[in-house]
Nucleic acid binder design. Sequence first.
DNA 1: TCCTAACTGGAACTTGAATTCCGATTCCGG
DNA 2: CCGGAATCGGAATTCAAGTTCCAGTTAGGA
Lengths: 194, 194
Amino acid sequence: MAEQTLTPGEERPLRADARRNRERVLAAARAAFAQEGEDVQMEAIAKRAGVGVGTVYRHFPTKKALLDTLRRQWLADVVSGVALALSYIEPWEALEVFVRRTAETLAGNRGVREAFGRLQPGAQEAIWSPEFEGYRREVARLLARAHEAGVLREDVDLPGFLALMCGINATVGHGVEPGLAADVLLQGLRVSAS
Amino acid sequence: MAEQTLTPGEERPLRADARRNRERVLAAARAAFAQEGEDVQMEAIAKRAGVGVGTVYRHFPTKKALLDTLRRQWLADVVSGVALALSYIEPWEALEVFVRRTAETLAGNRGVREAFGRLQPGAQEAIWSPEFEGYRREVARLLARAHEAGVLREDVDLPGFLALMCGINATVGHGVEPGLAADVLLQGLRVSAS
DNA sequence: TCCTAACTGGAACTTGAATTCCGATTCCGG
DNA sequence: CCGGAATCGGAATTCAAGTTCCAGTTAGGA
């Protein structure tokens, strides 16, 4: 057999059925976490996917690994909101777009909410550090612009703002329409016309 | 031995050491939940109290029972905030007092926060239903007065407001000073001077 | 088609935390 | 001061996940 050389990082292509199952598992897990939250059991996910637990573990060595894969995808949605927001010139409008969009993203998916909730440093299980740093940096720019323009409360800094976003997270999690939650937060953030 | 008659509901007075231990357990549990959250282990609580797990279980048949006892006490703090608020005549001031006070209560104690978070109906483990009904009713009066006076956003109803309070819960849980969190929420709730 | 490496399913094992059990110890009325 | 009922402590048990293992089943190259 001509041993096929593989550079270390390179992945041997999966067998057709394996790839199919991997997708199934991922889809099932996505759905399961989205509606039941992070404590669905692996068995349940396997059942949803129509495979055995062993198969789930073949593709993801650990429940955490599976979760992290999904969280990375979900958080990409949240992060894409910053990029969009930064494309707006007007500082307040940018912030507004960001908040509204984030609220909407959070509203529909329990998985995203739970992931977002443990994004802040200090959470017992801080996830996704490298990419999150980028996120923080961009949000900081958003805030800096707003501060500079004098439209955002002085006393709201980056950690404070992120905590407030966690607040919105909880709020929409409890069933408030994202639009309303965003309205309230935005009005609360805007510098009062004294 | 003259069998002492006890009406069914009546409690035989605990032996001196038993009462002492009960208090210790309660105090230890209060402290443990307040700082480490709901998933401290029973062993840890027992150790803090300087007793064995068996003793903890003698006084509280179940972890949930112990938690519920504390939650009832904690939520009493939250609830007392409504009473205080209702003593203010001016509708907006009443709301303000309520929000600020609640934020402060939540800020200092993780146990209260976790309890508050699962107060809303729909949480998997809805606790404390009977007293909670009273709480909802009083808060509803607070809102009604504010609505009547035209100082509170029309589109914030009771469930929405409670969800926003859950938002404040999460916000202070992530380290924002309660005063700031309350400021932002209050400014967001006030009807915009259009 | 045949062969074999790769993959599958689910029973069995491991883990960690809640709960039970029971011999030892401690209160307290007589 | 005594007896025994009430209480204590913590080892042992139970229970609910997560994770491992391996006999059986494919996919797909020769």
